[in-house]
Design a protein around this nucleic acid. Structure first.
Ligand code: ZN
Ligand code: ZN
Ligand code: ZN
Ligand code: ZN
Lengths: 138, 138
DNA sequence: CTTGAAGCTCTAGTGACTATAGGGATTATC
DNA sequence: GATAATCCCTATAGTCACTAGAGCTTCAAG
């Protein structure tokens, strides 16, 4: 039986975060010691590692909740799980696209000024004042 | 003199957001009509357009506050403004790098399963359970 | 002068935590 | 068995940049 601190050390998830996951329904409410402290077993450790890994990959709490629910039904087809992952991949790709546009614009803006001007002439300030100086939309 | 709604329509910034920017100190507290409604002038319109553009480029409120403060001193050198922009560009590039790693991993995971398995065999679920199946860190 | 749109303030909700306060439990040492 | 250090508990509030709603007042058109 592991304390919440043990679980934390073994997974790298902070103690308050573990309690938060319980509150959000990702972890089952843990058994308690006589003194009301949480006690965990190996299955909880695995569940938490799953959650942690899914979070590291950027999945949100709701998606993880659904994946956990699915994983409780080993014989169902996995189309739903695959769709969740595919949707997330699409969302990540969209974010990348948006950030690349920002990067391009910012790089252009930054390259036009080297800190050697006055604020009045600064290309950074002028670009922010006038989207017309931009190369694209955002 | 423009009402807050006029300002909203001309900049595409929603009315509550304009009030929020005032509260955050990005916009000066507007003059008021006899009936306590906000009234704006051209300079406010320009300020709001600046804020909007900076937000569209991903700068946060604090950075925008600093840029506005700088733009009030036209004769100072622009090194601080340039640094804010350059720092933001670096942050954007870091985000892109992280997202690209996620994308790669997610693409790999998704490509291994086509929805035609059982949950028990699903590569998505198995990958989430075991980071050892991953190609890199995240 | 009436009506409907627009404006006002204040509060709370979003997501995924993190921090703090003010206590109680457990464990190691003496 | 006492004590101290560490751990754990709940509950609340703060983060960021808004957004939504309640309940009220003001404005502009007809
Ligand atoms: Zn400059
Ligand atoms: Zn622009
Ligand atoms: Zn699958
Ligand atoms: Zn992994």
């Amino acid at each position: 039986m592991l304390s919440i601190g043990d679980l934390s050390r073994r997974t790298g998830v902070k103690v308050p975060t573990i309690r938060y996951y319980e509150q959000m329904g990702l972890l089952d409410a843990a058994e308690r010691s006589e003194g009301n402290q949480r006690r965990y077993e190996r299955t909880d450790l695995e569940r938490l590692a799953f959650i942690r890994h899914a979070r590291d990959l950027g999945l949100d709490i709701q998606a993880i909740r659904e994946l956990i629910a699915l994983s409780q039904h080993p014989n169902l087809p996995c189309a739903d799980a695959d769709r969740i992952a595919a949707d997330h991949l699409s969302a990540v790709r969209e974010k990348i696209e948006k950030l690349k546009k920002l990067e391009e614009e910012l790089a252009r803006i930054v390259s036009h000024c080297d800190g050697g001007h006055s604020i009045e002439e600064c290309y950074v300030i002028r670009s922010l004042s006038d989207h017309g100086l931009c190369g694209g939309e955002h």
